[in-house]
Design a protein around this nucleic acid. Sequence first.
DNA 1: GCTAGAAAGCTAATGCAGTTAGCTGGAGTT
DNA 2: AACTCCAGCTAACTGCATTAGCTTTCTAGC
Lengths: 189, 189
Amino acid sequence: MVSRAGLSQEAVVDAALELVDQDGLDALTLAAVANRTGVATPSLYKHVRNLAALRQLIALRVLDELTERLGAAAMGRSEEDAIRALMLAYRQYAAERPHRYAALPQKPQPDAALAAAGGRLVEVFLAVLRGYGLTDSAAIHATRCVRAAVHGFVALEVAGGFGLPEKLDVTYENLIDMVSGGLRTGTFT
Amino acid sequence: MVSRAGLSQEAVVDAALELVDQDGLDALTLAAVANRTGVATPSLYKHVRNLAALRQLIALRVLDELTERLGAAAMGRSEEDAIRALMLAYRQYAAERPHRYAALPQKPQPDAALAAAGGRLVEVFLAVLRGYGLTDSAAIHATRCVRAAVHGFVALEVAGGFGLPEKLDVTYENLIDMVSGGLRTGTFT
DNA sequence: GCTAGAAAGCTAATGCAGTTAGCTGGAGTT
DNA sequence: AACTCCAGCTAACTGCATTAGCTTTCTAGC
């Protein structure tokens, strides 16, 4: 069935994710992945176009993983309850897998699969916001605001952008209040 | 006065910033900086410890530049007026210099100068929030929330994380409303 | 003015990572 | 049993960061 090491694109991405989890994003090198999969570096090119492509595959995985988590968290809840669950789950994912979260692309990627995954993520937010009775355009603006708040907090937290780490839970509760308050009382254009 | 090319750490950072502005963060390479300053690559080590150090110097510059802009924008304003000006100036900086904004560190940096610069940035936010009569701890939480919202939006925008770029101005106005509404009515612990 | 020393620059060389080219051997097929 | 395909390999090249050691030039002090 499979020749030698039984490698596949999936297995390569798996190994790359382990590497990222353990040693951070900067440690993601084809040599390291090859080493971890017990293969010579050039052999990886049989499964992955190049390093950039591997990074995109990773981003795709992370995005889908996050989307799944958020969907599960929001399921069966509505309105503020759902928003709160969504935001908590989001932060929790980044806390559990900070390096994976950091692996999300920081620059515009022209990748179609990635864009689709981003769309799926947005869909989860939109689904939750429908409970607020927001019309199409308003829902989009509201979604962006929620995403901005959540991503901003998490990104700053992961990057060590906040001083004291003790009270971050409290800050996040405040942020949740701010967001859900804004959704309740705010006027979205 | 100065030996040959009249280089200095400042000049190296200047050249590096030009490079980043023009070609993006990935284009920041010692070879490229050397080329731009008319010097052989190893000569740069006379002014900068290594590439990582250069990156930190760049981050420092950007952080201070941003802080200065925000301070100027908030000056003479108070409460919602000031918050609005602050948020608009923040986004405008990132829009003008997206690559510089992206050059801010994404990972915890143990650099003291960088931490100090971060502290100065936070000070501007805190100064504005004092107008809301927030006590110490509450002011810190509120500041973090504002920063999270602003940074999240800007980071997503710079990264192309939003679909349609047309209505982003509108979204940002909504975000400003959400934040200032939260500051007005919210209870910060 | 002259000379010593520090500073700034250079060339040479090393190591590592990504990538390409071309070979090879085993698995599945006919 | 011969054929074909493909995963994996070795060899080789490139670009970049970094170090070592030499040369030149400016400055300071005599």
